[in-house]
Design a binder for these strands. Sequence first.
DNA 1: CGCCTGTTTGATCTACCTCAACTGCTGTGG
DNA 2: CCACAGCAGTTGAGGTAGATCAAACAGGCG
Lengths: 260, 260
Amino acid sequence: MPMTAPHDAPKLVSSPMTCESCPIRHKAVCSYASTSELSRLDGIKFYRNFEIGQEIVGEGEATSFVGSVVTGVAALHKTLEDGRRQMVGLLFPSSFIGRPFRQWVPFEAVAVTPVRLCMFHRSAFEEVLSESQSLERRLLEMTLDEIDAARDWMLLLGRKTARERLASFLMILARRSALLDNQSLRQGQRIDLPITREAIAEYLGLTIETVSRQMTALRKDGIIGLVETRVVEITDLAAFCRAAGEDDGPTDWPQQARSA
Amino acid sequence: MPMTAPHDAPKLVSSPMTCESCPIRHKAVCSYASTSELSRLDGIKFYRNFEIGQEIVGEGEATSFVGSVVTGVAALHKTLEDGRRQMVGLLFPSSFIGRPFRQWVPFEAVAVTPVRLCMFHRSAFEEVLSESQSLERRLLEMTLDEIDAARDWMLLLGRKTARERLASFLMILARRSALLDNQSLRQGQRIDLPITREAIAEYLGLTIETVSRQMTALRKDGIIGLVETRVVEITDLAAFCRAAGEDDGPTDWPQQARSA
DNA sequence: CGCCTGTTTGATCTACCTCAACTGCTGTGG
DNA sequence: CCACAGCAGTTGAGGTAGATCAAACAGGCG
């Protein structure tokens, strides 16, 4: 990810790792890389760890790095002068962070859990990109995915009610975790919330109190259960889907199918 | 842009045109194309015109085309089952529309003014992309620009007041038209609104009445003048910038500067 | 002239915000 | 082992920005 200097002394390179054994090897930008391209990346990569709350890049900052989330969750934020904040990106392992071909980044990136990044000097990465069409192709596809997600998010922010927003957010997490387990969405599924109520509120364009109230409303309606404050359980799948404003049913929508 | 079949008899190819004389030759995806690549595109392109309100692609529809807006303005929409609609993209000349490498498009595209598109069969375009890194590079850059715009938009939808939303929208149009004239934002500048109040409301995540009320509020505060219902004039630039929630001054922010 | 569509304005209603208090957990120190 | 500070989360009471419902207005066009 792009960043100039380590702000608050981000962790130095810790346990070294090869790309071969990397947990995001087959999902990140590098997933299309050939063996030779991979070894090239292997040579120029470096890792850095960030603690909870630590800033990864500042808004509007000049940045000379790009990279991928290896473990943990990071958030992108935009802030108005008076302090109103909106989350504009939530990055899970394999997400790309930073802007190739740009000196500036128009948002702030923060670690919301402990985060480990696989980083490259921007210029070095750009060079590799220029010589590897497949890598650039992968980056394009990931960017298109991000745009799709951003547009769903815009619909949420512009038109959904507080209840629908929260349910939609939980749905996104539920789908994600089901996908990782190679399962479909199911009744009784547990959802780990990687972020605080405050971060959820910033994601949803709501206040923390409204998030909390809607959480208990969904619980009182028997749609979800609160196993712990950071673990919810789907107790009524159909109602859950309805609450999220999606035509019910655990089907993953076909629009997302990749053609190539 | 992506689309299967012409829905309501879109206009057939009208006045033929060569890429050399094309008004978006130096701004669209094709702007990085070499002479030979351009002639290749020239050979496979075709034009289609759409009338106001005409659907270009349906939400979730299988599509076999991509393309660029040559003239006119198109909008991308997402709709909930109960009819709530949110605009998620506003496309001006040179904007790219459609999803290479995807069969489906997760939004509806509509002509909001008469629109002329320069189109390609998706598969043919993908083939050209695969053989031209510079074309693919341009598409990546345009997509990154779109993400930045989407994130600004998310901040608007999630955190700005109705007044700020409208002012921000007018600011975007003002910047655009100033840029086209190679001028900076200035007092007295006129802004043509290419879209109806309803479309503005769909853009801003508001109702038509609120848009109208905020428009008259800005007028009564002496910030803008309503030359016609579809033409506004900036009468107090500093206040205008403040209302848009941006640090005042007509400066185009540096984040947008291209590095490469 | 009268209709239709886009826009403005008014009156009321409500979802969400704001401010404030309270709960429960975790860690710290005496 | 208890006291208590600190933080995340919940709950309550009241206020408000924007939605909703309704009516009037303006311009274009048959």
